[in-house]
Design a protein around this nucleic acid. Structure first.
Lengths: 239, 239
DNA sequence: TCGGTTCTGTACGAATTCGACCAAGAAAGC
DNA sequence: GCTTTCTTGGTCGAATTCGTACAGAACCGA
């Protein structure tokens, strides 16, 4: 059923000590994850945490007047349900699948128990929380201080890091939620990238042609959380 | 030297179990904190954590091209040096004093040891991390989706929650850093508030006259992290 | 193959915020 | 006292982003 460490693609699971992985393994259950599937509902108890194997999940903050904005980006380098790691069973944020994929899920209480039993497991998962915090902070910085063009570049790079291949199945609508701008702003910014042949787009997908130049456009808006991941988890974030 | 639980003003220390407090007490050392004093330098090992008793600290994200933005707001409801709680000894963020005050500091390694020894201490401090995460996420949402006027109202309310009295010793320059806007944008937004007698300002200080109406202006931009604090720590954030 | 839905392209004026200034007032230091 | 520094008030045009709207294209299911 569940794969052995070497065939698991989730980088957190791969980075942890073999006996920590062995501790989790009996509880892990493979699941496929469809677009828009909600993994953590806002203000409801978290039943399962998910270690992603493929695809992409977004954590979004929601305000009472229904403004929404992505504050976290989780692929196979991490897990969803981070409040569980902080001994909290629910959160005002929502986590849902943005790019379909698959993962391994386990019950939140089983993970809590495993963490209690293993300090080293606890440590690596708490370091993952630190990565998420830095990522959220960078989002705040990006939203506050950078223009749409740079932010778009940043988000495309973040997606590319976490997916296989150069095809990013993202609609402008989704991107507009992630970036906190209006939809047609995304369309325009994408046209700029398309004009200089950094991407090629078709309905519902963005094909990345030139990552290096995209990174130039993102500039200092991109890169910090990725470096922290490598430092704290001990593996590069992307393949 | 160090106060007993009942005379300590820090709300985290007050909220914790008596024997958890007793465990920390021998290590706590009172310090006064001056404006602009750096408590956690970016990318340098964290030597001390601080439980604030009075005053206000800001956590700011810094990008390589020196853009800066506040991503966390810490008063006597919390502590600085949160990476320590996540078994991480440094961070790309900087924490400094924004409003002078005082606090109790202890060595980071003593806190780590105390957390290892007491699950209940660990739990309450990790819940504090969750509050900080939500606060950072709200900052991202505020920066991305709300106008200067609302964001200013939000920040003033956050300061007011954490300080004694209605006088907020903040310069426009500081506020512009916190909000991620240009300085004269802050001046203009403050004039609006002054025009309707919600605040009165003088050089270097903002006197809050009508909190209720300020909260109206902030609207849904304010309140969520504060509610989470009450829920997770078990005490209201403000007095 | 048809009809409905989703996604993209594009347009327009309006509103917000920016960047870069300069000048005057207030506090602090010598 | 006098000078220096910090803080605030204010302006200007320019750039960005918004809100809204509509139409065509691509896709999906029946």
């Amino acid at each position: 059923m569940t794969a052995s460490p070497s065939t698991v693609r989730n980088r957190l699971l791969r980075a942890m000590a073999p006996d920590d992985f062995a501790r989790l393994k009996p509880h892990l259950e493979p699941v496929t994850l469809g677009v828009k599937q909600v993994l953590v509902e806002a203000n409801e108890p978290i039943e399962y945490v998910h270690f992603l194997e493929a695809g992409l999940a977004s954590v979004v903050a929601i305000s009472p007047d229904n403004e929404r904005l992505e504050v976290g980006h989780i692929g196979r380098e991490g897990m969803t349900g981070e409040p569980i790691l902080l001994t909290v069973d629910h959160t005002p944020h929502q986590t849902f699948i943005q790019v379909a994929g698959s993962g391994l899920r386990m019950r939140a209480e089983d993970l809590s128990a495993a963490m209690e039993a293993s300090p080293s497991l606890k440590a690596i998962l708490l370091r993952w929380v630190q990565v998420l915090m830095i990522q959220t902070a960078q989002s705040a910085l990006a939203n506050g201080r950078y223009a749409i063009q740079e932010r778009l570049a940043r988000w495309l790079l973040m997606c590319h890091d976490r997916l296989d291949g150069d095809d990013l199945p993202l609609t402008h609508e989704f991107l507009s939620l992630m970036l906190g701008v209006r939809r047609s702003g995304v369309t325009e910014a994408l046209h700029v990238l398309e004009g200089v042949k950094i991407v090629r787009t078709s309905r519902g997908r963005i094909h990345l042609l030139d990552r290096a130049r995209l990174a130039e456009i993102a500039g200092d808006c991109y890169g910090l959380p990725e470096a922290e991941y490598a430092r704290l988890i001990g593996l590069p974030l992307n393949n």
